[in-house]
Simulated scan of single mutants.
Amino acid sequence: MLDSRICALHTRRMELHSLGGYRLLEPVPTLSSTTRLFLACPESAPDGAPATNLAKVLMPGEGEGFNMVKAQFAHEANLLRSFSHTGIPSLRAAGTQNGVDFFVMDYIAGVDLGELLGHDRGEPRPLSKELAVYILGQLADALRYVHTFEVPTAEGEEGDGFEDLDVLHRDLCPANVYLSLEGDVVLGDFGSASSKWLAPEFTAAEAGHVAYKAPERVTGSGKATVKSDLFSLAMILWEILRGERCFTAGNELETMDEIVRFDISHSSRRVSGLSSKLSEVLRRNLDRDPERRYPHAYKVLQRLSQSSEAGAAEKSRQELSRLVAEAVAERRSTAPAE
């Protein structure tokens, strides 16, 4: 594992000003002990220019644990470099500079979904059904793209010239859903993702926020699959509609026990007032049995588009833009004075 003393020493000595042609503006708080985040902008931008990018820096370490972290870091950069979808941040630069591994991606000015839902304040609130369908529709489309992402086959291999990369996000949660001031919904943080590009020995089985893991991942009875990602997606939908955290246990073991016993058909877990299509999305994809869930994210997208709550996408986008602007203003008003 990483030695925290090495990280602390390196942080004091490492005076980063720019990486890959991007000027670092200020650090961004993160709970990660293995990476650091910085707001950034192109070096060609004038002084005082706003942040347009986010730089992710790998902290130094040693041993087998660090080798896994380093492989996952490079894997995330490779995925972002290859993806091309409006609902996923684009990679702008990556490499090693002065011994520092880094990559730079688009910065989404706004808030994450967890902040909008009040998770950080301990005061969760619901959003409208129409807004929930809009947000989930955008996420489902990004997830459909990720799950079906193909790459060219190696020269000489049989087939149609492309093969599925078998990408799984494995960490779908409100904190990894970014909402822009324009009302865009972006799926981020592929640091826990798996694919054919990442060797099995570097694919941590326990990756992801515990409170959004599917039951089969918690019990170890099944590995991460498309259907476990869909469970996490539906859990986000449940929390948006109910305006509360689903699992609120005080520690991971108790949370895992709650997940294993979770029953969407129980009266205490139901969400009332939904159209039949929207209710089906929740009921099917929050089923404890993965075989009863939808086979792919496109099915989620299809059912959401057929729901009666899906009729006002542009209006919902404008509403989301307004709510994000209010959340940003509130954050600034409560921020401690410098």
Rank of each mutant, 00 (worst) to 15 (best):
Val260Cys: 11
Ser305Arg: 13
Gln302Glu: 11
Val186Glu: 13
Gly183Leu: 00
Leu165Val: 11
Val146Ser: 03
His85Arg: 06
Val226Asp: 03
Arg261Tyr: 04
Arg269Leu: 10
Val111Pro: 03
Thr225Ala: 13
Pro126Phe: 12
Arg217Ile: 05
Val111Lys: 12
Phe247Asn: 02
Asp47Tyr: 02
Leu320Glu: 05
Pro89Val: 04
Ala204Met: 15
Glu330Asp: 05
Gln318Cys: 01
Glu150Ile: 04
Met105Leu: 09
Ala93Val: 07
Val28Glu: 09
Tyr298Gly: 12
Gly48Cys: 08
Ala175Leu: 13
Ser128Val: 04
Phe231Leu: 09
Leu80Val: 08
Tyr107Glu: 01
Thr153Asp: 01
Met256Arg: 05
Ala310Cys: 06
Leu116Pro: 06
Asn176Tyr: 11
Phe190Arg: 15
Arg23Asp: 02
Ala310Trp: 04
His147Arg: 07
Leu139Arg: 04
Leu172Phe: 13
Ala45Glu: 09
Arg92Pro: 04
Gly21Trp: 03
Asp101Phe: 10
Val210Glu: 10
Ser272Pro: 01
Asn285Pro: 01
Gly21Gln: 00
Thr203Arg: 15
Ala310Met: 03
Met105Ala: 07
Leu168Pro: 03
Arg270Thr: 13
Glu309Leu: 05
Arg303Glu: 09
Leu113Lys: 06
Glu252Lys: 09
Arg270Pro: 10
Thr153Ile: 09
